[in-house]
Amino acid sequence: MNQVPLSHILFVSTALFFIGIYGLFSRRNLVCMLMAVELILNSVNINFVAFNKYLYPDRLDGFFFVVFIITIAAAEAAVAIAIIINLYRNHRSIDVEDATNMKF
């Protein structure tokens, strides 16, 4: 089978990463920012899977990492959503620009 070269996959994951970064910087809505973070995490996941597949096909460490990251991302999303909901209850807004209470 004619395999996709590794560099193509890495290109996809890098693109995904910077899309995530862009979203993180450009959005003011916390939910959108959360989604951007998920993108970044997934780009990392792709990297792990790809390197594992191409460089060490007989080992499984990379896959384990991916499974961990997915689990932690789920937990993180739950926590972040909880924080966002609390923020909304206190400020009636989920715009990061409004959450400046901790400023010196």
């Binding site: 970064i21 993180l24 910087f25 003011r28 920012m33 990061v96 620009e97 400046t100 400023k103 010196f104």
Partner: peptide, 17 residues
């Protein structure tokens, strides 16, 4: 240096990245 602590999340992220 306290000006750095602006309270703007995205500014912090900028420093970080």
């Amino acid at each position: 240096i306290r000006g750095i602590q602006s309270g703007r999340l995205q500014q912090y992220m900028l420093y970080f990245f």
